[in-house]
Design a protein around this nucleic acid. Structure first.
Length: 569
RNA sequence: GCUCCUGUGGUGUAGUCCGGCUAAGCAUACUGCCCUCUCAAGGCAGUGAUCCCGGGUUCAAAUCCCGGCGGGAGCACCA
């Protein structure tokens, strides 16, 4: 064995020993050597023996000796370890070429957009941007019974708020004629057939893996029935079914429905059409003709991938790559309309913008910034494992964004009067932000001030406190109404510091504190706390929607002249 | 029930495809210190993971293989 290798081994052993209280192990040193010198693998036995010897030697000498040997022999490893840099954004995409990636976000206009939509939209956008590609917004509106005009608009408003812009905005329903063309093609080629069986028969056969009699109909029958779908058949009487595999383990593949008859009025197209493609057929074709290179959807669609590719194969159409990510929900914050709607009807929450909800509108009202939503979502990564994200992760991103332009204001909850007769002045100027230049505000006062009960409760006669920005006070009387006297303005004291409000300058308002809507699956009766508070009247001069930090309380967003919503601490 | 996906500190994740470059990285939460007329932001430090469990392959496994277990989803003429 050459001396150089021995030296190398000793170096690694020493380094590792120093990092671990003077002790190293050959199990650690062997891989390290082998990883840098793969050619040694064949001589493994010999090397392992040598390493054991060296490791023993190193372990015998003291930590200080180890350190001094490193200093003398291998000073290069003394350089401090750099902090590891984290990959920015999402992992790279397989098969993605710069400038050629096309992604799409296909929401159904059947409700208000929420955090789950944000995740899908942001992932699609990020990837398109990452590769200098194209983004498409496609309203997936092929069920006229569900879609409503206001939802098309609400989704666009939400996306705008998130700051996402699209190269193309379209509706799936724009391509109805194309679906018919492809529908006829897939029927004519024998890859689909028209089934007139009753719904429960179809479902029973699916369960039992049995083909239905319609699947044996000849081409003429299918052709004829295809045309009948457009006028003769009533809803429920006939559906177009893909010829999949009734014996497939994947239930999705057991001759799924491609088209059905729906007579409802479509918000965009009225009664022009009554044969509607279903989701699987529509997305596959749309993704293909829109030139989508990478399509992303959430995990519950995973089993539908096989169908998606099969439809495109049957039609000999180009296939995008489909990938899925986990759904995003917050603990105790339902996303689904099925859960939210009854709460609205029962009057438990006001509307879809109630601050306890994870809708985009609610997050906005609550004071969450779109950039925070984006950072938060990206921080969750692109993963298929179930995420029940904690809301405080979002809050932390938001706090950092909001802090630098939130005006600092004083506010007291459950106000208690504090009378101080010997105040040396009648007004004071307070600065609006501790570090950023945001100007000052003037507060006028007389002997009547307020502090919050929480603070007042800990006081007794003789307690000394500092009213921030005002001066030091010695309490002379406690009780329902407190009294105190001004004892100077020395700032080098360690009295407890309280914020205060002057009676002359006060404004009463309500603060809404949203809490978890559901606890252990049950509606939380106390999910919205309402606080009656006094703030400085300066509040009235702020524009609606501004973010405020009430000192020693937390961040709030001004909702109106007499209501603010608690954002987070 | 059947099928598919998933399982890394309190929490969210990186790493897993192509086993060694990290006795497991980052963020958040928590604790302490610095800064500061805020229990904020900022700076620094610290606590915290036998990488779900059990076998196997290998000189070497969070990473590969087999078997369990936990969690989620799908089983619609909804998307």
């Amino acid at each position: 064995m050459d001396e150089e290798l021995k030296k190398e081994i000793r170096k690694i052993a020493l380094q590792n020993a120093v990092e671990h209280h003077g002790q190293t192990r050959d199990k650690i040193v062997i891989p390290k050597i082998l990883s840098t010198r793969p050619e040694l693998r064949i001589k493994i036995n010999e090397i392992a023996k040598e390493i054991s010897l060296i490791v023993d030697e190193v372990n015998k000498i003291s930590l200080t000796e180890q350190k001094s040997e490193i200093e003398k022999e291998f000073p290069e490893i003394l350089a401090p370890k750099e902090k590891q840099k984290q990959r920015e954004g999402l992992p790279s995409l397989e098969g993605a070429e710069q400038g050629k990636v096309v992604t799409r976000f296909p929401p159904e206009p059947n409700g208000y957009p929420h955090i789950g939509h944000a995740k899908a939209a942001i992932i699609n956008e990020e990837y398109a941007n990452m590769y200098g590609g194209k983004k498409i917004l496609r309203m997936d509106d092929t069920n006229p019974e569900n879609e409503r005009l206001e939802y098309y608009a609400a989704i666009k408003v939400g996306l705008e708020w998130l700051g996402i812009q699209y190269d193309v905005v379209k509706n799936t329903s724009d391509d109805m004629e194309l679906f018919y063309e492809k529908g006829l093609e897939i029927v004519s080629s024998g890859n689909a057939y028209i089934c007139t069986c009753k719904r429960d028969i179809i479902s029973k056969n699916r369960k039992e893996m049995k083909a239905c009699k319609c699947s044996f109909g000849d081409p003429d029958q299918n052709n004829d029935r295809w045309h009948k779908m457009f006028e003769k058949y009533k809803p429920g009487e006939a559906v177009v079914r893909f010829r999949g595999d009734m014996k497939s383990k994947n239930t999705v593949m057991r001759d799924p429905v491609l088209f059905r008859v729906i007579d409802a009025k479509h918000p965009l197209l009225g009664n022009k059409f009554r044969v509607w493609p279903n989701y699987d057929f529509a997305v596959a074709i749309e993704d293909s003709i829109d030139g989508i290179t990478h399509a992303f959807r959430s995990k519950e669609y995973e089993l539908r991938n096989e169908l998606y590719y099969s439809i495109l194969d049957a039609l000999k159409m180009r296939k995008p790559r489909m990938m899925e990510f986990s759904r995003l929900e917050f603990k105790g914050m339902p996303v689904s309309k099925r859960v939210i709607k009854p709460l609205i009807e029962e009057g438990k929450i006001s509307w879809y913008d109630d601050p306890r909800l994870p809708t985009l509108e609610a997050l906005r009202r609550r004071g969450i910034r779109p950039e925070a939503v984006r950072k938060f979502i990206l921080s969750l990564g692109f993963t298929k494992s179930n995420t029940l994200a904690p809301f405080d992760a979002l809050e932390s991103f938001n706090r950092k964004l909001v802090d630098s332009d939130s005006i600092r204001l004083y506010m007291v909850k459950n106000p208690r009067k504090l009378v101080i007769k010997n105040l040396p002045s009648s007004s004071v100027e307070l600065s609006n932000h501790p570090t950023k230049e945001m100007g000052k505000r003037k507060i006028e006062f007389d002997e009547n001030l307020f502090i919050s009960s929480e603070d007042a409760n800990n006081l007794r006669s003789g307690s000394k406190i500092r009213l921030i920005g005002l001066g030091n006070i010695s309490i002379t009387k406690t009780g329902h109404q407190l009294e105190g006297e001004f004892i100077g303005d020395d700032m080098n004291v360690d009295y407890p510091k309280f914020q205060w409000v002057s009676q002359k300058n006060s404004h009463q308002l309500k603060i809404l504190i949203p809490k978890s809507l559901f606890v252990d699956g049950e509606y939380n009766q106390n999910s919205l706390e309402e606080l009656e508070v006094y703030s400085e009247s300066h509040y009235l001069e702020l524009s609606e929607g501004s973010e405020i930090q009430f000192v020693r309380f937390g961040y709030c967003r001004k909702d109106s002249q007499n209501q603010a919503i608690f954002t987070h601490k």
